[in-house]
Design a protein around this nucleic acid. Structure first.
Length: 246
DNA sequence: CACCAGGCCGTGC
DNA sequence: GCACGGCATGGT
Protein backbone atom coordinates (compact mmCIF):
# COMPACT_ATOMS: atom_id res chain seq x y z
CA UNK A 1 0.00 0.00 0.00
CA UNK A 2 1.26 3.44 -0.96
CA UNK A 3 2.17 5.64 1.92
CA UNK A 4 -0.24 8.49 2.47
CA UNK A 5 1.20 11.98 2.09
CA UNK A 6 -1.18 13.88 4.31
CA UNK A 7 1.12 16.89 4.34
CA UNK A 8 0.99 17.22 0.56
CA UNK A 9 -2.80 16.87 0.53
CA UNK A 10 -3.38 19.41 3.30
CA UNK A 11 -0.52 21.87 2.84
CA UNK A 12 0.17 21.54 -0.89
CA UNK A 13 -2.10 24.26 -2.20
CA UNK A 14 -5.54 22.63 -2.14
CA UNK A 15 -6.52 24.12 1.19
CA UNK A 16 -5.30 27.00 3.30
CA UNK A 17 -7.22 25.94 6.41
CA UNK A 18 -4.62 23.65 7.96
CA UNK A 19 -1.61 24.33 10.18
CA UNK A 20 1.05 21.89 11.28
CA UNK A 21 1.73 22.13 15.00
CA UNK A 22 3.23 19.69 17.50
CA UNK A 23 3.07 16.85 15.02
CA UNK A 24 -0.63 17.39 14.37
CA UNK A 25 -2.47 18.89 11.43
CA UNK A 26 -4.99 21.33 12.85
CA UNK A 27 -7.90 23.20 11.28
CA UNK A 28 -11.11 24.90 12.29
CA UNK A 29 -13.87 23.42 10.16
CA UNK A 30 -17.50 22.49 10.71
CA UNK A 31 -17.69 24.76 13.80
CA UNK A 32 -15.00 22.89 15.70
CA UNK A 33 -11.27 22.22 15.86
CA UNK A 34 -9.94 19.10 14.17
CA UNK A 35 -6.54 17.74 15.13
CA UNK A 36 -5.27 14.75 13.22
CA UNK A 37 -1.97 12.93 12.93
CA UNK A 38 -2.80 10.58 10.07
CA UNK A 39 -5.58 9.78 7.63
CA UNK A 40 -6.67 6.96 9.93
CA UNK A 41 -7.91 9.57 12.38
CA UNK A 42 -10.43 10.75 9.80
CA UNK A 43 -12.20 7.48 9.08
CA UNK A 44 -14.37 7.42 12.20
CA UNK A 45 -15.60 11.01 11.84
CA UNK A 46 -18.43 11.50 9.34
CA UNK A 47 -17.41 15.06 8.46
CA UNK A 48 -13.77 14.15 7.87
CA UNK A 49 -14.72 10.96 6.02
CA UNK A 50 -16.49 13.15 3.48
CA UNK A 51 -13.87 15.92 3.57
CA UNK A 52 -11.07 13.49 2.73
CA UNK A 53 -13.20 11.65 0.17
CA UNK A 54 -12.50 8.33 1.83
CA UNK A 55 -15.06 6.52 -0.28
CA UNK A 56 -12.95 6.99 -3.42
CA UNK A 57 -10.16 4.59 -4.38
CA UNK A 58 -7.14 6.90 -4.61
CA UNK A 59 -4.74 3.92 -4.69
CA UNK A 60 -6.29 2.65 -7.89
CA UNK A 61 -6.41 6.12 -9.44
CA UNK A 62 -2.77 6.70 -8.60
CA UNK A 63 -1.61 3.45 -10.16
CA UNK A 64 -3.57 4.12 -13.34
CA UNK A 65 -2.11 7.60 -13.56
CA UNK A 66 1.39 6.20 -13.03
CA UNK A 67 0.92 3.75 -15.90
CA UNK A 68 0.03 6.49 -18.38
CA UNK A 69 3.55 7.74 -19.18
CA UNK A 70 7.05 8.19 -17.76
CA UNK A 71 6.51 11.72 -16.49
CA UNK A 72 3.40 10.74 -14.57
CA UNK A 73 5.20 7.71 -13.21
CA UNK A 74 7.97 9.96 -11.92
CA UNK A 75 5.45 12.46 -10.56
CA UNK A 76 3.48 9.83 -8.66
CA UNK A 77 6.64 8.24 -7.29
CA UNK A 78 8.00 11.58 -6.11
CA UNK A 79 5.42 11.76 -3.33
CA UNK A 80 3.03 9.62 -1.32
CA UNK A 81 -0.67 9.24 -1.94
CA UNK A 82 -2.45 12.53 -2.67
CA UNK A 83 -6.19 13.02 -2.20
CA UNK A 84 -8.56 15.66 -3.55
CA UNK A 85 -10.27 17.40 -0.66
CA UNK A 86 -13.97 18.21 -0.57
CA UNK A 87 -14.02 21.61 1.06
CA UNK A 88 -16.78 24.07 1.78
CA UNK A 89 -17.72 26.04 -1.38
CA UNK A 90 -17.54 29.45 0.25
CA UNK A 91 -14.17 28.79 1.88
CA UNK A 92 -12.81 27.52 -1.43
CA UNK A 93 -14.12 30.53 -3.32
CA UNK A 94 -12.43 33.08 -1.08
CA UNK A 95 -9.30 30.96 -0.67
CA UNK A 96 -8.67 30.77 -4.39
CA UNK A 97 -9.53 34.41 -4.97
CA UNK A 98 -6.75 35.10 -2.47
CA UNK A 99 -4.47 32.72 -4.35
CA UNK A 100 -4.15 34.69 -7.56
CA UNK A 101 -0.64 36.03 -8.23
CA UNK A 102 0.25 35.00 -4.69
CA UNK A 103 2.18 32.26 -2.92
CA UNK A 104 0.95 29.52 -0.60
CA UNK A 105 2.61 30.89 2.50
CA UNK A 106 1.09 34.33 2.10
CA UNK A 107 -2.33 32.97 1.14
CA UNK A 108 -2.32 30.98 4.38
CA UNK A 109 -1.46 34.11 6.34
CA UNK A 110 -4.29 36.09 4.74
CA UNK A 111 -6.72 33.23 5.44
CA UNK A 112 -5.74 33.38 9.14
CA UNK A 113 -6.12 37.14 9.33
CA UNK A 114 -9.56 37.01 7.72
CA UNK A 115 -10.56 34.33 10.23
CA UNK A 116 -9.37 36.27 13.27
CA UNK A 117 -10.90 39.55 12.15
CA UNK A 118 -14.26 38.39 10.76
CA UNK A 119 -14.74 34.78 11.88
CA UNK A 120 -15.71 33.51 15.31
CA UNK A 121 -13.76 31.74 18.01
CA UNK A 122 -14.85 28.11 18.36
CA UNK A 123 -12.17 27.24 20.91
CA UNK A 124 -9.69 29.41 22.79
CA UNK A 125 -7.30 30.72 20.14
CA UNK A 126 -8.98 28.92 17.23
CA UNK A 127 -11.09 30.95 14.81
CA UNK A 128 -13.41 29.73 12.10
CA UNK A 129 -13.18 31.15 8.61
CA UNK A 130 -15.86 33.88 8.27
CA UNK A 131 -19.19 32.93 6.76
CA UNK A 132 -20.50 35.01 3.87
CA UNK A 133 -22.67 36.95 6.31
CA UNK A 134 -19.72 37.65 8.57
CA UNK A 135 -17.51 38.71 5.70
CA UNK A 136 -20.29 40.94 4.33
CA UNK A 137 -19.47 43.33 7.16
CA UNK A 138 -15.99 43.96 5.78
CA UNK A 139 -15.33 47.08 3.74
CA UNK A 140 -12.93 47.24 0.83
CA UNK A 141 -10.76 49.61 2.82
CA UNK A 142 -10.56 47.22 5.79
CA UNK A 143 -9.69 44.31 3.54
CA UNK A 144 -6.89 46.27 1.91
CA UNK A 145 -5.50 47.21 5.31
CA UNK A 146 -5.55 43.55 6.22
CA UNK A 147 -3.25 42.90 3.28
CA UNK A 148 -5.35 41.34 0.54
CA UNK A 149 -4.32 44.12 -1.85
CA UNK A 150 -6.02 44.33 -5.24
CA UNK A 151 -8.17 41.30 -4.33
CA UNK A 152 -10.29 43.40 -1.95
CA UNK A 153 -13.01 44.31 -4.47
CA UNK A 154 -13.10 40.68 -5.64
CA UNK A 155 -13.98 39.56 -2.10
CA UNK A 156 -16.71 42.17 -1.91
CA UNK A 157 -18.12 40.91 -5.20
CA UNK A 158 -17.91 37.29 -4.00
CA UNK A 159 -20.08 38.18 -1.00
CA UNK A 160 -22.59 39.85 -3.29
CA UNK A 161 -22.69 36.86 -5.68
CA UNK A 162 -22.56 34.09 -3.09
CA UNK A 163 -25.71 32.45 -4.53
CA UNK A 164 -23.75 31.37 -7.58
CA UNK A 165 -22.12 28.71 -5.40
CA UNK A 166 -25.47 26.94 -5.00
CA UNK A 167 -26.33 27.28 -8.70
CA UNK A 168 -23.04 25.72 -9.76
CA UNK A 169 -23.86 22.55 -7.86
CA UNK A 170 -26.38 21.35 -10.45
CA UNK A 171 -24.54 22.52 -13.56
CA UNK A 172 -22.31 20.43 -15.83
CA UNK A 173 -18.63 21.29 -15.61
CA UNK A 174 -18.29 23.87 -18.39
CA UNK A 175 -21.41 25.74 -17.32
CA UNK A 176 -20.33 25.65 -13.68
CA UNK A 177 -17.03 27.21 -14.77
CA UNK A 178 -18.86 29.98 -16.60
CA UNK A 179 -21.16 30.60 -13.64
CA UNK A 180 -18.25 30.93 -11.20
CA UNK A 181 -16.36 33.18 -13.63
CA UNK A 182 -19.14 35.74 -13.32
CA UNK A 183 -17.62 36.58 -9.95
CA UNK A 184 -14.93 39.26 -10.18
CA UNK A 185 -11.46 37.86 -9.69
CA UNK A 186 -12.56 34.38 -10.70
CA UNK A 187 -11.06 33.23 -13.99
CA UNK A 188 -10.43 29.74 -15.41
CA UNK A 189 -7.71 28.79 -12.96
CA UNK A 190 -9.53 29.88 -9.82
CA UNK A 191 -12.85 28.44 -11.03
CA UNK A 192 -11.31 25.04 -11.75
CA UNK A 193 -9.65 24.94 -8.32
CA UNK A 194 -13.00 25.67 -6.67
CA UNK A 195 -14.74 22.96 -8.70
CA UNK A 196 -12.10 20.35 -7.97
CA UNK A 197 -11.38 21.05 -4.33
CA UNK A 198 -14.93 21.65 -3.17
CA UNK A 199 -17.30 20.10 -5.76
CA UNK A 200 -15.39 16.88 -6.53
CA UNK A 201 -15.27 17.75 -10.22
CA UNK A 202 -12.35 15.60 -11.32
CA UNK A 203 -12.26 16.92 -14.89
CA UNK A 204 -10.82 20.25 -13.75
CA UNK A 205 -7.25 21.04 -14.77
CA UNK A 206 -5.96 24.29 -13.20
CA UNK A 207 -3.23 26.00 -15.21
CA UNK A 208 -1.15 28.09 -12.85
CA UNK A 209 2.39 29.28 -13.51
CA UNK A 210 3.80 25.90 -12.42
CA UNK A 211 1.50 23.81 -14.59
CA UNK A 212 2.22 26.04 -17.58
CA UNK A 213 5.88 25.10 -17.21
CA UNK A 214 5.01 21.39 -16.98
CA UNK A 215 2.79 21.47 -20.06
CA UNK A 216 5.23 23.51 -22.15
CA UNK A 217 8.20 21.35 -21.24
CA UNK A 218 6.77 17.82 -21.04
CA UNK A 219 3.40 17.86 -22.85
CA UNK A 220 3.78 20.24 -25.81
CA UNK A 221 0.66 20.30 -27.96
CA UNK A 222 -1.36 18.40 -25.36
CA UNK A 223 -4.08 19.65 -23.05
CA UNK A 224 -6.19 18.47 -20.13
CA UNK A 225 -8.02 15.87 -22.21
CA UNK A 226 -4.83 13.83 -22.46
CA UNK A 227 -5.15 13.02 -18.75
CA UNK A 228 -8.77 11.87 -18.89
CA UNK A 229 -10.40 10.55 -16.70
CA UNK A 230 -7.89 11.71 -14.10
CA UNK A 231 -7.38 15.33 -15.12
CA UNK A 232 -7.53 16.85 -11.65
CA UNK A 233 -5.57 14.21 -9.78
CA UNK A 234 -2.88 13.99 -12.49
CA UNK A 235 -2.56 17.74 -12.32
CA UNK A 236 -2.12 17.59 -8.56
CA UNK A 237 0.69 15.03 -8.84
CA UNK A 238 2.40 17.05 -11.57
CA UNK A 239 2.03 20.26 -9.55
CA UNK A 240 3.58 18.60 -6.50
CA UNK A 241 6.38 17.10 -8.58
CA UNK A 242 7.41 20.23 -10.50
CA UNK A 243 7.54 22.28 -7.31
CA UNK A 244 9.65 19.62 -5.60
CA UNK A 245 12.31 19.59 -8.32
CA UNK A 246 12.45 23.35 -9.01
C1' DC B 1 17.32 47.05 -7.74
C1' DA B 2 14.88 43.17 -10.06
C1' DC B 3 11.77 39.17 -10.30
C1' DC B 4 8.32 35.85 -8.51
C1' DA B 5 4.01 33.79 -6.37
C1' DG B 6 -1.79 27.99 -7.43
C1' DG B 7 -4.14 35.11 -12.28
C1' DC B 8 -7.37 38.24 -13.64
C1' DC B 9 -9.11 42.74 -15.42
C1' DG B 10 -9.38 46.39 -18.64
C1' DT B 11 -7.89 48.14 -22.84
C1' DG B 12 -6.46 48.04 -27.57
C1' DC B 13 -6.17 45.86 -31.80
C1' DG C 1 -10.48 36.35 -30.59
C1' DC C 2 -5.35 37.37 -28.53
C1' DA C 3 -1.52 40.41 -26.42
C1' DC C 4 -0.21 43.40 -23.06
C1' DG C 5 0.33 46.38 -18.72
C1' DG C 6 -1.17 46.93 -14.16
C1' DC C 7 -2.03 45.25 -9.81
C1' DA C 8 -0.77 44.79 -3.46
C1' DT C 9 2.24 42.39 -0.77
C1' DG C 10 6.21 39.98 1.00
C1' DG C 11 10.10 36.99 -0.05
C1' DT C 12 14.56 36.09 -2.49
Amino acid sequence: MMEENLRETLMGGQSFSWREEDGFFTAVLNERVYRIKSIGDAAADPFLYDYFDLGYDYEKARSEIAAKDEILRKATESTGLIRLLKQDHWIALISFILSQNNNIKRITGLYSRLSEKYGHEVEKGYWSFPTADELSKATEEELRQLGVGFRAPFIIDAVRNRDILEEAEALPFDEAMKALEKIKGVGPKVASCILIFSYQRREGFPMDVWMKKVMAEYYPGKDASYFHPYEALSQQYLFSWIRSIT
